[in-house]
């Protein structure tokens, strides 16, 4: 089994600027309907929630080793369990990429404070990172 980790840090005010500049096009390109609904349910937290979710998608790309592939951000979705914990759901070609890479499990942690939001993603794979000679 191999383990990979990905981290990303996003400035919340930059997400607010993108939203002001590109509006719905920015939202629809990056986020699923469920993510948009959750983020906009609390107007005071919308930008922080969107920033944390963008950080999660970028951290997931790093943990999956997919930075060099063409990936639709909406295929990496942050879902909130009833317990309040967040988890990742992969869809479409990204889910297939993960299967091809032997990804067995993904774990996500999100945090935001003030103007910054961050995410860490850990992935486990059934394929060893370094082939044995």
């Amino acid at each position: 089994m191999s383990l990979r980790v990905g981290i990303d840090l996003v400035q919340v005010s930059r997400i607010a600027e993108s939203l002001a500049e590109f509006g719905d096009r920015f939202l629809r390109r990056l986020y699923t309907d469920g993510e948009i609904a959750y983020a906009t349910a609390a107007p005071a937290l919308t930008h922080a929630r969107l920033a944390a979710r963008f950080a999660a998608k970028e951290a997931a790309l790093k943990a999956l080793g997919l930075g060099g592939e063409g990936v639709d951000w909406r295929q990496i979705e942050v879902r909130r369990a009833s317990s309040g914990a967040c988890e990742l759901a992969l869809h479409g070609a990204t889910a297939q990429h993960a299967r091809d890479l032997g990804i067995a499990e993904l774990a996500l942690s999100l945090s935001h404070e003030g103007d910054y939001a961050t995410a860490v993603v850990v992935s486990t794979s059934n394929v060893p990172t370094s082939p044995t000679p």
Binding site: V10, E21, F22, G70, V71, A93
Partner: peptide, 24 residues
């Protein structure tokens, strides 16, 4: 994140859409 803004601005300027396979 800045690269996303660049992508959206390019789409607006050149009236095109980057398909998923080019989002890398």
């Amino acid at each position: 994140h800045a690269s996303v803004n660049v992508m959206l601005a390019l789409e607006g300027e050149f009236d095109l859409e980057f398909p998923d396979h080019m989002l890398k």
